[in-house]
Amino acid sequence: MADSEMQALIKRINELAKKAKEEGLSELELIERKDLRQKYLKKFRESFKSQVEMIQVFDKAGKEVTPEKVKKLQRDKGLRDD
């Protein structure tokens, strides 16, 4: 999901949250809010997972200490040569 799409999703979620506090939501709006929240969480998790898959961790001495689980994921995706 493009950044602008994510921003639009957040904007609508916030609009519904404000309306829920002020006057309540209709059944359709409750369904829409639930759907939007699920879409947001799915995209957030995908983005976070992608960031973790790209990470490399180094100690103070400059030695790579990336967890083996992450290294394996990176190898499986062709992101590592070692």
Rank of each mutant, 00 (worst) to 15 (best):
A8T: 11
A8S: 14
A8V: 02
L9C: 04
L9E: 01
L9F: 05
I10K: 13
I10E: 09
I10T: 10
K11I: 07
K11M: 07
K11C: 05
K11G: 00
K11P: 01
R12E: 05
R12F: 12
I13L: 10
I13C: 07
L16P: 02
A17H: 15
A17S: 15
K18Y: 15
K18L: 15
K18V: 15
A20D: 15
A20M: 15
A20K: 15
K21G: 04
K21C: 04
K21W: 09
E22D: 13
E22L: 09
E23F: 02
E23S: 15
G24A: 09
L25A: 06
S26N: 04
S26K: 01
S26H: 02
E27C: 07
E27K: 06
L28N: 14
E29N: 02
L30G: 13
L30K: 14
I31M: 10
I31T: 12
E32G: 08
E32K: 02
R33A: 14
R33P: 02
K34I: 01
K34F: 10
K34S: 09
K34N: 09
D35Q: 15
D35I: 10
D35Y: 12
D35G: 07
L36S: 02
L36W: 11
R37E: 14
Q38D: 14
K39N: 10
Y40K: 07
L41P: 01
L41Q: 13
K42V: 10
K43D: 14
K43V: 08
K43C: 11
F44I: 08
F44S: 12
F44N: 12
F44T: 11
F44V: 12
R45Q: 08
E46L: 14
F48C: 10
K49Q: 09
K49T: 07
K49N: 11
S50M: 10
S50Q: 13
Q51N: 14
Q51G: 13
Q51V: 08
V52A: 11
M54Y: 08
M54G: 08
I55F: 07
I55Y: 08
Q56E: 07
Q56N: 07
F58V: 00
D59I: 03
K60S: 10
K60G: 00
G62P: 05
K63C: 09
K63E: 14
E64M: 05
V65Y: 03
V65A: 03
V65L: 01
T66K: 01
T66M: 06
T66P: 06
P67W: 05
P67L: 05
E68G: 02
E68K: 01
K69T: 06
K69R: 11
V70Q: 01
V70N: 00
K71I: 04
K71E: 01
K72Q: 14
L73I: 00
L73G: 04
L73K: 00
Q74C: 00
R75C: 07
R75M: 06
R75F: 01
R75D: 03
R75A: 01
